[in-house]
């Protein structure tokens, strides 16, 4: 108890420890490359496209079909241990030629490493990419959001449906560059479609917590769900 409390300032290692301090003066391009990138290039040469270092972070470009395999390796291998999926998202450039890019952010907490996987999905054909849900179950909602906003289909996702917009949303995928800011329909039509949802029939039998509590639900909700209503929206 007599140990004095040492203040650790942001960007500095704790006094007496060898933990790496936050890097200063990071170059835009170039710098130390994440060693995982080399190992991906060796093991998955047929999926590996290129790797680059931007602002100190390593971007690894992969072919879309190999993403799940690479992610599984990064997660399972004892020398990698990427145990945290930070984000799954996509980027569409304002260009008719450039492909839509899928982006996965992975972090290895034991090794203090960060890697960004990218995968180009060419325009003009269905945007399909394997889901990383079998490896990281936290990808569930991230991929649903990505599907909702960009229309990218994640193969192998257990429950791919809209998450931010309501399920009957018919106007398309809002974050695509060809989507008008105010939506495709007139305001009155948008409002009319939004008001046709039933806010009380929000839950479906597939949601386990509701199935468990089925007997405790109000009678009208029980009747509705027992009648085979799936999502209610």
């Amino acid at each position: 108890m007599s140990e004095t409390f040492a203040v650790i300032h942001a960007g500095h290692a704790a006094p007496g420890s060898s933990a790496p301090a936050t890097q200063r003066k990071v170059a835009h391009r170039g710098g130390a490359r994440n060693p995982s990138a080399e190992r991906i290039a060796e093991r998955f040469a047929h999926y590996f496209v290129r790797a680059e270092v931007i602002w100190g972070d390593t971007n690894v470009y992969l072919k879309p079909e190999g993403v799940l395999e690479v992610v599984r390796y990064l997660h399972d291998d004892a020398a990698e241990q990427y145990d945290y999926l930070v984000d799954v998202t996509a980027v569409e450039y304002r260009d008719l030629e450039l492909p839509v890019e899928m982006v996965w952010h992975l972090r290895s907490i034991p090794y203090r490493r960060f890697v960004r996987l990218k995968s180009p999905l060419p325009k003009g054909q269905p945007l399909r990419v394997p889901s990383v849900w079998p490896v990281y179950m936290s990808a569930d909602w991230l991929e649903r959001e990505c599907y909702d906003m960009f229309g990218i289909v994640f193969e192998g996702h257990p429950d791919l449906r809209r998450i931010l917009m309501w399920e009957q949303y018919k106007e398309g995928y809002p974050l695509r560059k060809d989507f008008p800011l105010r939506g495709r329909f007139s305001r009155a039509e948008q409002l009319r479609q939004a008001l046709t949802q039933n806010p009380e029939a929000k839950y479906s039998m597939e949601e386990l917590s509701i199935a468990d509590a089925f007997e405790d639900l109000p009678r009208d909700m029980r009747q509705r769900l027992a009648g085979g209503e799936r999502t209610g929206e």
């Binding site: 800011l181 305001r187 009155a188």
Partner: peptide
């Protein structure tokens, strides 16, 4: 509703990209 909520014209023509 369309009249009061769209002072700058039809939203379908609002593609700015």
């Amino acid at each position: 509703i369309d009249e009061i909520s769209e002072p700058f014209g039809n939203s379908v023509h609002q593609t700015r990209s």
